[in-house]
Nucleic acid binder design. Structure first.
Lengths: 261, 261
DNA sequence: CGAATAGTGTCTGTAAGACACTATTCC
DNA sequence: GGAATAGTGTCTTACAGACACTATTCG
């Protein structure tokens, strides 16, 4: 559903003319992107190594400031492209949550920094190149990141800047939840894929094993989840059918992930 | 899980000293609250009639500007209290989404206005009183609001300001979805409630009839959803057991709402 | 051949939903 | 008594998950 276009009345035009925005305190608004992909069967997230203060040398989610004429979603896409050199857009992008706790960014001492986090999925886009303000950029397997709620030991993994560990955690939970009732697993695989490819997405995001027989049957029984192409992929041990994403965005009944261990 | 507390290094302190926030364009950040309750068995939302431009005379979600020292969640609670006179806090408050499309607020001509929408639930708190900048404040039954995606005819219902119709729509969808897999229906009823009370919440939010027999059995079979108090309420036709909310926040397996008609 | 993968058949346990039926209270 | 509400019993259907089994390809 679209919002109704806002028309500006004459009374409002007059008001705006005389409106003084400086009566309200200044704010900075940024967008940060949690870009997830599957590499070597493992769930991985894109991080950039900061080349400037604050938190110079820490690893952070790619992101940056909202420009005046762009939507915050456009900010997310622009920063992702600028910081990583990727030309392809993610196959899925959704807003996750907004983080605005006072003190989350050291710059809060001068201006309040509110960040809108985005969650993005795409098939493995290859190796990023470091962009503006970044020392390096790479995918990290989520399993290789330090436990978010334990002490971080130098050298064992990247140190995450700001509250990005919390953002990432929220994003991983959202991703796992969304695979239950949507067809978003297809956002992680190439245009044409096998049912095994799709199952590997579920296994990576949910961190569990899934029975191939039951999964195959369930995917094929869900209306408009996947459409057969008729062709087969013969690179594996046995030939497997190739499919494309179907029309459905919501799957009903849902796929349930196993209860947490 | 908590985010790691951010400690500020000496390098960052020096950086912050010299940091000039005016290199980034100015922004306004606001919080708007979608407060839902059940009145006379119908789902209702709190709206305030604007007494100042822009969109003077339109109905809007209660909300306002982020103060420098508060979290955006605190902004939501403060504005709700200021605009309606309610002293009790909602029994549930969660962040919904952030709205930042250029042009969503006429003040965008001077300063970009980004709004963080919150979704709140509580038992019927009675009649609000209009606060600062508001001509009046009242609950509207959601069914009595004009269709969001049709032309709004003057006099048939409140005209919603800004993109608040879209926010409300997103909030209603979130509320309906959350009743499926959480125990949040209890946030709409008093401390002690009957199973019928709880069923009426589901019926109002999902806008459907639910079989009382199956609902009763399912609620009682879900571990830690509700705890019996031992006492009974005798105001209805037949005595009904009184319950309080149990420990669980998530229900598994979920309650499914009927497929959309 | 043996190992690995793709996929079918079949069985079991759980749960949603339909509905008949009983019990209690108010009018 | 009659109407409305609270709650139990029971039956049917659907589906998740377990697992045996077949088919195909690669080494």
């Amino acid at each position: 559903m679209m919002g109704k276009a806002v028309t500006i009345s004459e009374a409002d035009l007059a008001f705006i003319e005389s409106y003084d925005p400086s009566v309200f305190p200044p704010n900075a608004v940024t967008a940060d992107v949690i870009l997830l992909t599957i590499r070597s069967g493992r769930l991985a997230v894109l991080l950039v190594e900061r080349d400037n203060p604050p938190q110079q040398g820490c690893w952070a989610l790619p992101g940056g400031h909202l420009d005046p004429e762009e939507s915050i979603t456009q900010t997310a896409l622009r920063e992702l492209s600028e910081k990583t050199g990727f030309t392809a857009e993610p196959t899925h992008l959704e807003q996750l949550q907004t983080y605005s706790t006072p003190g989350r960014d050291a710059r809060d001492k001068k201006v309040r920094v509110t960040s809108v986090a985005y969650l993005a999925f795409m098939p493995d886009p290859g190796t990023p190149r470091a962009g503006a303000d970044t020392r390096s950029a790479r995918f990290w397997a989520v399993d290789d990141l330090p436990e978010f709620n334990s002490l971080i030991v130098q050298g064992e993994g990247p140190i995450l800047a700001f509250d990005h560990a919390k953002m990432l955690n929220d994003g991983l939970e959202r991703a796992a939840a969304k695979l239950e009732y949507t067809t978003l697993a297809t956002a992680f695989v190439d245009d044409r894929f096998t049912i095994s490819d799709l199952r590997h997405v579920y296994e990576a995001v949910w961190r569990c094993d899934i029975n191939p027989a039951n999964f195959s049957r369930k995917v094929k029984a869900t209306p408009d989840f996947i459409d057969p192409t008729g062709s087969q992929r013969a690179t594996g041990r046995a030939p497997a059918g190739l499919y494309v994403k179907g029309e459905a965005d919501i799957i009903s009944p849902p796929f349930f992930r196993p209860a947490l261990a």
